[in-house]
Design a protein around this nucleic acid. Sequence first.
DNA 1: CAACTTCTGGCAACCGGTTGTCCCCCGCCG
DNA 2: CGGCGGGGGACAACCGGTTGCCAGAAGTTG
Lengths: 342, 342
Amino acid sequence: MEAEGGSEPRATRAPTIYDVAQAAGVAASTVSRTFARPGRVNSQTAERVRAAAAAIGYRANPVAQALSTARSRMIAVLVSDLANPIYAELLRGAQVAASAAGYGVLVEDTREDAAIERETAERILPMVEGVLLASSRMSDAAIRGVAKQRPAVVINRGLADVPCVVADEQRGTRRAVEHLGEAGHRDLVYVAGPDASWPNGARWRAFSDACHELDLTGRRIGPFEPTFAGGFEAALALGGSRASGVLVFNALMAVGVIRGLQQAGLRVPEDVSVVGFDDVLIGQIVSPALTTVSTPLQAMGATGLRNLLALVNGARSRGEPVVVPARLVVRESSGAVPARTG
Amino acid sequence: MEAEGGSEPRATRAPTIYDVAQAAGVAASTVSRTFARPGRVNSQTAERVRAAAAAIGYRANPVAQALSTARSRMIAVLVSDLANPIYAELLRGAQVAASAAGYGVLVEDTREDAAIERETAERILPMVEGVLLASSRMSDAAIRGVAKQRPAVVINRGLADVPCVVADEQRGTRRAVEHLGEAGHRDLVYVAGPDASWPNGARWRAFSDACHELDLTGRRIGPFEPTFAGGFEAALALGGSRASGVLVFNALMAVGVIRGLQQAGLRVPEDVSVVGFDDVLIGQIVSPALTTVSTPLQAMGATGLRNLLALVNGARSRGEPVVVPARLVVRESSGAVPARTG
DNA sequence: CAACTTCTGGCAACCGGTTGTCCCCCGCCG
DNA sequence: CGGCGGGGGACAACCGGTTGCCAGAAGTTG
């Protein structure tokens, strides 16, 4: 007679295919095939197995499956900073897409630090089937190193030899500059984010080119932290400038710039027009509402993840990056150039 | 002679302990113990093994380790909506804490849906060592069901028999009501969030009690969606009310309420005072800045995760929930009651 | 009716670690 | 010099599935 415990907590071992096999009077392999290869076993037998499994509450152990099939059904997603809503959105898109495909998402917040990112990647690489790098801060070489070990897709970064999903920074930025130009602004400033950020470089280049073509003056200040505080700080640096139009690396910073300018006694958009990147709630809430270059963040996350799964399943990537459109959403933070009183 | 491929992609199988064993001239078990039980093997042997491992680039396979030790070193974190910054913060706190302990975090966005949440939980339960439920929408019974299968910790919800981390909703709410009362507001409204949300219930009860004790009139409207749009909608419903002080379920909604009221031609705080819950960036940015009940979200995520790990490692939980303090942060959206002109 | 398929279940090896157990060898002690 | 103790390495079983291969049964074909 076995010991009769009181309320057993998580005592009893979970049932395995062997338990099911015994209950159904078949071999373990038959149980395995019943679930993994329907059709391979006689339907009557299968029915018996399923009944036995249900009766004893069998659930396949995903770890064991992962070991024997070498497929963990997990994807790693690395983001720079979960507190930044753009990563929350990207992650959400990716997570929902993964879930739909029966995959789990291992998140890691790399805290805007290339070293942490690298180390993290190495650590979790062996247990996932692929890696989605959102706005990686690593060097190209490091990214390729990761991609050599596992299928990888990069979001928000253009990079040869590794599949990418990027927004059309070029056109988006161009539209923003045109918008400012049409409003009469001649002197523009680009407020830069982190040097390690690829979109930052792309936006600055596109800004610079567009200014040149449209015969506008375009300067750059920064880099600043890609946060509200960083933008606020940038607004102070903007003080002595003659610039009437400002393009800011991201939405959080742009909001910071607006607040900083207001703090300094300038009105937006009457004195200075501010345009940002990323269409997140905070930009819509702030007053004046932020004119911004909008990219479909959730969709990018989802697309990135789906492409990654395709890769995992043996697809070969076309060399071309996936480019999603960016459009300008004009709100209240930009307007006509002020009449020069000075 | 083997086929000589060109650039081999991810061809070669990762080295195993058997490869290391062969290279070092020892048995596989010795290799395993070299890493898993330092001290059990002679230091000279260990050195040889480590050298061999380094030479061939061996890395332990976490899946195999998970199978044989029954420890996957992964924790599931379920949140209702990643697009809500409070979950992003909770998740961030949890992720960083997990990472520090060498654990990975599997996130799942349950989209505010109890059914999805349940199903998700069942699906990933077998591959994690524990579960952190942030603002679960499931029934108490369903949560207990989960907790019976794996160690679980619940955040933002009080629940007997399952370890919890909650903010001091009672005191936080009380402070908010006192604040409004001291400013002269006699007629208050609580704008409710989802019925399935535990903090929503706790806040409403505390609000109601506080109003009673302080001899104020406290009504309730809702439920509304816990989003900006939901708050905006609520503001419309607030229209005909004589209430001059409004307490709103969360920050996103509170911001929506402010904007909705402004839209309706009311000034905040001159005509109506608005107080919210959750101290997130958006509440600081909005104009007027939101007076809010602030709780340490990242810390709650981190604490929840650490307690979960303790549980996983065999600690028994004291029955008491962990209560973290909530404090009122007074900003611009609340002020003195307007002089009654009507 | 023999030869050949097709269907279907079982056996056993395998994925890559971990760990209980055995045993050899060495040193130490009486 | 014999016996004892313990350090340390090897063997093999095990975690829980998956799958190649085999063989018996049933069905098909000439």
